[in-house]
Simulated scan of single mutants.
Amino acid sequence: MTNSLYPHGSHRSPLPPAARPADGVPAPRTLHPTAPPTPAPASAPARTDAPKPKQRDAFFDNAKYLAIVFVAMGHCWEPLTDGSRTAEALYMTVYTFHMPAFILISGYFSRSFDMRPDRLRRLITGVAVPYVLFEIAYTLFKRTAGGDPSYPISLLDPWYLTWFLVALFVWRLTTPLWKIIRWPIPVAVAVAVLASVSPELGDDLDLQRVLQFLPFFVLGLFMKPEHFQLVRRREVRILSVPIVLGALALAYWAGPRMTSAWFYHRDSAQELGAPWWAGVVMTLALFGCSIVLTACFFAWVPRRKMWFTVLGAGTLYGYLLHGFLAKGSRFWNWFDADWVHTPAGQIAVTVVAAAVITVLCTPPVQRIFRFAMEPKMEWAFKKDATAVARARART
């Protein structure tokens, strides 16, 4: 095909229908004034080779940002729980829903995952590689700042926050399996229950957490947009207020009577000094409580674009980076000061934690650490023949 209008003199090939001129531009004259111009089809859109960028949903970005803020605040409340029953009640309540909400959203956005090569590459570069890098970085940090020079580097035993990357990797790989079985959510809950009564699982790859948090990921896989619309109704928002207040009151009562380790989902019932049947009861009870409080959380997440919406794309950055400060605050005894344990000090610590995690989710921080969180690593993969063929067809 040629760009010339008249490639062969007077013997012209038929031209495509003329497009409508832009406003203010005169239409070209036709060689035959008596012949009516051929109208351009109104329904034919202009073709373009560049794919349109996906529109991000402000609701989910808002939910991810607010959930990660609760994660940071929960970590700063943990050292305060021994001396403050209020801090312990807040801590237990937040731990009931903040990671379940985050995991449910992760499942929701994993619905399209399959074993396609490009998606496997993104799984490796966006989850597996950051796990390796941050596991090594955390270990070196513990050796130096934590005063434990003999702490080994072990990719089989995640330390602190890196368990989530291991879990996300395993969950996403099993996504096709959950799509073909008949009762995925009950099966996932059964797996979590069995894990809670199986102390022999050990610490390899933090399998207790991988399996006990699994139902929230599977639930997210089968969530639909209308389910989120359901929990965002006005009556749900109103009902969520007494539910959350009741949860806080229950946590205030239960604080001195139970260990908060149940909310971490990292140990079996026997490892927590409880009989095996307590694992069954607590797993089911906490799953139900987490779903209810997560629904209450979603009910109050703003739907429109907010000043913090853009930060939703950087929550994994904030999650992994704030771990150095969260652990460093213990290594450097920041919580030993008496003023921190006063009501004003506890409020100040909470505000600082929210501010720090907010900064760590910002685009400038993302650009600095993208080499570790989203490496391209094109050198490590074979070229996709299908993608290459598509690129040639477009040129």
Score class of each variant (00 low, 15 high):
P41I: 05
A42C: 03
S43W: 14
A44W: 12
A44N: 04
P45S: 12
A46Y: 05
A46L: 03
R47S: 13
R47Y: 14
R47G: 05
T48V: 09
D49L: 07
D49H: 09
A50P: 06
A50Q: 13
K52G: 08
K52I: 13
K52W: 09
K52Y: 07
Q55L: 09
Q55W: 03
D57Q: 11
A58C: 07
F59R: 01
D61T: 02
D61E: 08
N62D: 09
N62T: 12
A63Y: 00
Y65A: 01
L66C: 12
A67R: 04
I68L: 02
V69G: 05
V69W: 11
V69R: 04
F70P: 01
A72L: 00
M73E: 15
M73L: 15
M73A: 14
G74I: 07
H75R: 07
C76E: 05
W77Q: 11
W77M: 12
P79G: 01
L80T: 13
L80S: 08
T81S: 07
T81M: 11
T81I: 15
G83L: 10
S84P: 08
S84G: 06
S84R: 02
R85P: 01
R85Y: 13
R85M: 08
A87N: 12
A87I: 11
A87Q: 08
E88D: 15
A89I: 11
A89N: 08
Y91H: 12
Y91T: 09
M92K: 10
T93M: 02
V94M: 06
Y95G: 01
Y95M: 01
T96F: 04
T96R: 00
F97Q: 07
F97P: 02
P100H: 03
P100A: 00
P100G: 01
A101H: 10
A101E: 10
F102T: 06
I103W: 03
L104T: 15
I105D: 04
I105E: 03
G107D: 09
G107V: 10
G107Y: 12
F109G: 01
F109C: 00
F109R: 05
S110L: 00
S110V: 05
R111Q: 15
R111V: 09
S112I: 06
S112R: 15
D114Q: 05
R116P: 02
R116G: 06
R116T: 14
D118L: 04
L120Y: 14
R122I: 11
L123W: 10
L123I: 10
L123A: 08
G126H: 10
G126Q: 04
V127F: 02
V127D: 02
A128N: 04
A128Y: 11
V129Q: 05
P130C: 02
P130G: 06
Y131P: 11
Y131C: 07
V132N: 08
V132P: 06
I136C: 04
A137I: 07
Y138F: 15
T139N: 11
T139W: 13
L140F: 13
K142V: 12
K142N: 13
K142Y: 14
K142G: 14
R143Q: 15
T144Y: 14
A145F: 15
G146E: 10
G146P: 07
S150L: 02
S150G: 01
S150M: 01
Y151G: 00
Y151M: 01
Y151E: 06
